[in-house]
Design a protein around this nucleic acid. Structure first.
Length: 353
DNA sequence: AACCCGGGGAG
DNA sequence: CTCCCAGGGTT
C-alpha cells in the first residue's frame, strides 16, 4: 500500500476547524477520565455513552474512589451499557493502580496494556490524548478511514490485514500533536467517513482517497464474512413476589453472560413454574400471572423471554448469603441489572399491581 | 483464528 | 430485519 505525504497535517487541520472538542471526556483530559471514556466507548456509540459517563464521574471522580467502590456499585452504573466485563476489568484495574502503582498511570503503552481491559489501541488512545505520547490507535474508525483511503481489498478481521493497517496507522501518526491526531481520526471516522453516506465532498483526504475513486467507497472496509443465522433460545424468568412485596433476585456468576449482575430465577421454557417454585422454596403459590413475552437479541443468538409474576407465601428456606436476596422493587432498580430484567421490572412497576 | 461478551442506533 | 459501534479476553 502506497502511503501519501501530508496525511496527518490535513487531518489535524480539518479537526482544528470542524472537529468536536466539547465532548465530556475532552475536558480536563487526565489519564483517569480519558481511560474511563475509552472503556465506555468500546463498541458503544458516543450518544449512548454520554449520560453514563456523567453519572459515573459524579460517583467515582478519581481512581481512588473507583478502587474503593463495591463491584455491585460499579456494575449498577454500567447497567444497560452491555459488555459487563469492561466494568469488572476496569474496577480491577483501578485497584491495581491504587494498590500496586501508587495511583500513578503507567507511562508506556506496554505498561498500560498490563491493566485488564486495556489493549494496544485503548492504551495508545489514553496515553496520546492525556499525555501527548506518540502512539497509534487502530479502532473501528481508524480502520474504516484507512481501509477506504487505501481501498484495502481484504477484511480487517484477518490478521495479515490488521497488521498492515497497524503499520499504516503508525506510519501516519505525527510526532507532534499526537493526542489531537488520535481524536481527529476518531472524529473523522465518526462524523464524516461514516459507514454509510460518507461526506466525501468535505473530507480533507478526498483528493488522494482510493476508495473515493471507486464506484462505492462504502464497500470498504470489506464486510465480515456472513455467518449462519442466529440460533434461538427461549427461557422463563420469574418475578417472585413475597408477602412483603419484595422480589427475589440472584447474582450471576462472574463469567459468562451478564457476569456479576443481579437477575431473576431462570427456568427452561418447558419447565413447570409450580413444581419448580414449590420444590425450591418449599412454599405454596398464591397466584401466577404471565407477563408479556418479548425477544432480546444478543450478538449471536435470539433469546425469547417468557416472564411471569409469581406471588408466594412465606419462605422458610435459608439461602447462601450474597448470591440470593429479596429486594423491594425500588432497591432492585439500583442494582446492576441486565437490560431485559430491567425492562421486566419497569413494566411491572408501571402496571403496578 | 474463532468465539465470547450487550445493547442500541441507523438504515 | 441486518450491520456495526472509540475492543479485549479466552480458547
Amino acid at each position: 500500500m502506497q502511503a501519501v505525504e501530508n496525511f496527518a497535517p490535513r487531518v489535524l487541520a480539518w479537526f482544528d476547524e470542524f472537529g468536536r472538542k466539547n465532548l465530556p471526556w475532552q475536558q480536563e483530559k487526565t489519564p483517569y477520565r480519558v481511560w474511563i471514556s475509552e472503556i465506555m466507548l468500546q463498541q458503544t456509540q458516543v450518544t449512548t455513552v454520554i449520560p453514563y459517563y456523567h453519572k459515573f464521574m459524579a460517583s467515582f471522580p478519581t481512581v481512588e474512589a473507583l478502587a474503593a467502590a463495591e463491584q455491585d456499585e460499579v456494575l449498577a452504573h454500567w447497567s444497560g451499557l452491555g459488555y459487563y466485563a469492561r466494568a469488572r476489568n476496569m474496577h480491577k484495574a483501578a485497584k491495581m493502580l491504587v494498590d500496586e502503582l501508587d495511583s500513578e498511570f503507567p507511562q508506556s503503552v506496554e505498561g498500560v496494556c498490563e491493566l485488564p481491559g486495556i489493549g494496544r489501541s485503548t492504551a495508545s488512545a489514553i496515553l496520546s490524548i492525556s499525555r501527548g505520547v506518540q502512539a497509534a490507535i487502530l479502532d473501528g474508525n481508524v480502520k474504516r478511514v484507512l481501509a477506504r483511503f487505501h481501498a484495502v481489498p481484504t477484511w480487517p478481521g484477518e490478521k495479515k490485514t490488521e497488521n498492515a493497517m497497524w503499520a499504516l496507522a503508525e506510519h501516519y501518526m505525527p510526532a507532534q500533536r499526537c493526542g489531537d491526531y488520535t481524536q481527529a481520526m476518531m472524529d473523522l471516522g465518526a462524523t464524516l467517513c461514516t459507514r454509510s453516506k460518507p461526506q466525501c465532498l468535505i473530507c480533507p483526504l478526498e483528493k488522494d482517497c482510493l476508495g473515493r475513486r471507486t464506484e462505492d467507497p462504502t464497500q470498504f472496509p470489506i464486510r465480515k464474512p456472513k455467518k449462519a443465522a442466529k440460533p434461538e433460545r427461549s427461557i422463563q424468568l420469574l418475578v417472585l413476589v413475597n408477602e412483603d412485596n419484595q422480589v427475589f433476585m440472584e447474582k450471576r456468576p462472574q463469567s459468562g453472560i451478564w457476569g456479576g449482575l443481579w437477575s431473576l430465577p431462570e427456568l427452561a421454557s418447558e419447565e413447570s413454574v409450580v413444581l419448580h417454585v414449590e420444590q425450591r422454596f418449599q412454599t405454596h403459590i398464591h397466584n401466577i400471572a404471565p407477563l408479556s413475552a418479548f425477544r432480546h437479541t444478543f450478538s449471536h443468538y435470539h433469546l425469547d423471554i417468557e416472564p411471569s409474576q409469581v406471588r408466594i407465601g412465606s419462605i422458610d428456606a435459608v439461602f447462601e448469603a450474597g448470591k440470593y436476596q429479596w429486594f423491594s422493587l425500588h432497591e432492585a432498580f439500583d442494582l446492576g441489572l441486565p437490560a431485559p430484567v430491567r425492562t421486566i421490572l419497569t413494566d411491572l412497576e408501571n402496571t403496578s399491581c
